[in-house]
Computed example of a mutant assay.
Amino acid sequence: MTEPTITQLQPMPEDWQRALAVVAHPDDLEYGCSAAIAAWTDAGREVAYVLASRGEAGIDTLEPAKCGPLREQEQRASAAVVGVSTVEFLDHKDGVIEYGLALRRDIAAAIRRHRPELVITLNHRDTWGGVAWNTPDHVAVGRATLDAAGDAGNRWIFPELTEQGLEPWNGVRWVAVAGSSSPTHAVDATPGMERAVRSLLEHRAYIEALTTEDPETYARTFLTGVAEQTAERFGGTPAVAFELFSR
């Protein structure tokens, strides 16, 4: 019996200079795609982060008023490991982020501020590969980011942004979704893997609340495991996968 053909992933486009990553929580990018971000910043590309919340509801043993500032601090340190110095927070409430006009407007404003060619977000579908239920925050932010990429270029959607000095930006060429069950493209994870592990380790308070496993063992096992699974569809090279939507 003939073995089924595995659809190979294509390399991500490289003809861009600025990217904006928009996710719901601190650590979303570190679990999803920081090895790719490290490779991009190494190549001289600019990447900025925008987070809808500060992750203040993410640690059961730590009240939100203390958790939010701690997770913000961990996120800034984590971003610096992979060459990202701009980290912004939209201050939507962790755990109850709502898809809608307010979120679309905030993300469209961020896109107008940063004027990226590539926008990155996290899995916006109901499940992770049909196996685990996704969180409402991920779904809301991922979907709103895909929509806001178009909103940012239309001066008649959210005209108040123009009044605030944020001129329309119709230069988004792609939106790349990390953690998708339907990936189309990938980036070699090998050059950025060690920094990706160190970047995830900066979320130590979160990891220690999540597992009793040694944090470095946990981070390395998770990230290398995902990259090696992706290698089967990327010519044997460990990789970070994305579902790429062209605009």
Rank of each mutant, 00 (worst) to 15 (best):
P64W: 02
L29S: 11
L29Y: 07
A39Y: 02
E72M: 14
V50D: 08
E72V: 15
I59Q: 08
A43H: 10
A24S: 10
Q73K: 14
G32S: 10
R71P: 14
T41C: 05
A52E: 11
R54S: 08
W16G: 15
Q73Y: 05
A39I: 02
A36R: 03
Q17M: 12
H25E: 03
S53R: 06
A52P: 08
D27E: 09
E56P: 09
E30P: 05
L20W: 05
R76H: 15
D15R: 05
Q17Y: 06
V47P: 11
A19G: 13
G32V: 05
W16M: 12
T61K: 12
S53E: 13
L70G: 12
Y31V: 01
A24N: 12
L62R: 11
A39C: 15
R71N: 10
A48I: 00
R76Q: 13
A38W: 02
A36P: 03
H25A: 03
V23F: 13
T41P: 13
R54M: 06
Y31C: 01
G58V: 00
V47M: 02
C33K: 04
V50P: 11
P26Q: 04
Q17K: 12
A19K: 02
Q73T: 15
S34V: 09
A21T: 01
Y31I: 02
Y31T: 01
E72Q: 15
I37K: 00
R76M: 14
A21R: 00
D42E: 14
C67A: 15
D42S: 13
H25P: 04
Y49S: 06
A24Y: 01
E63L: 15
E30L: 00
S53P: 11
H25S: 03
E46N: 13
E63G: 14
S53K: 04
E74H: 11
W16P: 12
R45I: 03
A38I: 03
E74T: 14
S34E: 12
A35T: 12
D42G: 08
S34A: 09
D27W: 00
C33W: 01
A35D: 11
R76A: 15
I59C: 11
D42C: 08
G55C: 04
A57D: 10
S53F: 03
A38R: 04
H25V: 01
L29P: 09
G58F: 00
V22M: 00
Q73N: 14
E72L: 13
A24P: 10
A43K: 06
S34I: 00
G58H: 02
A39R: 06
A65K: 12
Q75G: 14
A39K: 08
V50T: 09
P64M: 09
A35W: 06
D28A: 10
E30A: 13
D60F: 01
A57E: 06
Q75A: 15
Q75E: 15
D42T: 10
P69F: 07
P69S: 09
P64I: 00
I37Y: 00
Y49F: 15
Q73F: 12
A52H: 08
G32L: 06
W16E: 13
P26I: 01
G68N: 03
S53C: 08
G55M: 02
S34Y: 09
G32C: 11
